[in-house]
Simulated scan of single mutants.
Amino acid sequence: MRGVSLVIPRHGHTAIVGPSGAGKTTLFSLVLRFLEPTGGALLLDGRPYRDHSHDEIRSRLAYVEQDTPVVPGTIRDNLLLARPGATDGELRRVLDEVRLAEKIDALEEGLDTPLSGAAVSGGERQRIALARALLRTPDVLLLDEATAQLDGLTEAAVQTCVRARAATGAVVTIAHRLSTVIDADTIVVMEAGRVRAHGGHAELLATDALYRELVEALRITADPQAA
């Protein structure tokens, strides 16, 4: 990472795109304080990271990886990792947000279904991980292509959830699909550890050659329903 200057608004959806090795994961690792910068500064609410404890920073953030791990136990156990004292009503609210409530209600053991069983698919596990993050109502929700294992209809439902969350907090997405970024308020294009360009989808298509190449290479279209 070199010469990166980036502001994430308190509300809204910011999407990060770029080729492999551009620095997207490193950027997230810095924000999550898995890495410490050797120069420059990170600020949260205008205060340098060094003035916050690790726990203070991570209590404000929630992170969903592309292959988010689940822990041994039930669906309920995995959700309660985020907020051990959450009620069944609160669990149902976040499951509704990721369009999983009806599916889990239909399981014989409901919330007490073991995640080790075949009753829950990879895409459903991903949505359980997203629901777990939402249960914390974080100030900043960080998503590393959290829709990677979802089919088109379910992905659209999750994007609706992301838009709703962006209205009340910050959502930052590392994205490899246009359907993930087309509704973003700002798209940030990274290359070789730098921010190369930023703007909306139409603007970047018109002005940035790398963004056009990324769109062409992924064979994605401007229609999110066709992605």
Score class of each variant (00 low, 15 high):
residue 100 L to D: 00
residue 100 L to T: 03
residue 101 A to F: 01
residue 101 A to N: 04
residue 102 E to C: 00
residue 106 A to L: 03
residue 106 A to F: 01
residue 107 L to K: 02
residue 110 G to A: 03
residue 110 G to W: 06
residue 111 L to W: 09
residue 111 L to T: 08
residue 113 T to W: 07
residue 116 S to R: 13
residue 118 A to K: 13
residue 119 A to C: 08
residue 119 A to V: 11
residue 120 V to A: 02
residue 123 G to T: 01
residue 123 G to W: 01
residue 127 R to G: 00
residue 131 A to L: 01
residue 133 A to C: 03
residue 136 R to L: 07
residue 137 T to D: 13
residue 138 P to L: 02
residue 141 L to Y: 13
residue 141 L to I: 09
residue 144 D to Y: 12
residue 145 E to D: 15
residue 146 A to D: 03
residue 147 T to E: 02
residue 147 T to H: 08
residue 148 A to N: 07
residue 149 Q to W: 08
residue 150 L to C: 00
residue 151 D to A: 01
residue 151 D to Q: 03
residue 152 G to P: 11
residue 152 G to W: 14
residue 152 G to Q: 15
residue 152 G to V: 15
residue 154 T to F: 00
residue 160 T to E: 15
residue 160 T to P: 10
residue 161 C to W: 14
residue 161 C to F: 15
residue 163 R to D: 14
residue 166 A to W: 10
residue 166 A to T: 13
residue 168 T to A: 11
residue 169 G to W: 05
residue 169 G to K: 11
residue 170 A to T: 13
residue 171 V to Y: 14
residue 173 T to H: 07
residue 173 T to M: 06
residue 174 I to C: 03
residue 175 A to Y: 11
residue 176 H to V: 05
residue 182 I to D: 00
residue 182 I to K: 04
residue 183 D to F: 09
residue 184 A to Q: 07
residue 189 V to W: 10
residue 189 V to D: 07
residue 191 E to P: 10
residue 195 V to N: 06
residue 196 R to E: 04
residue 199 G to Y: 06
residue 200 G to S: 08
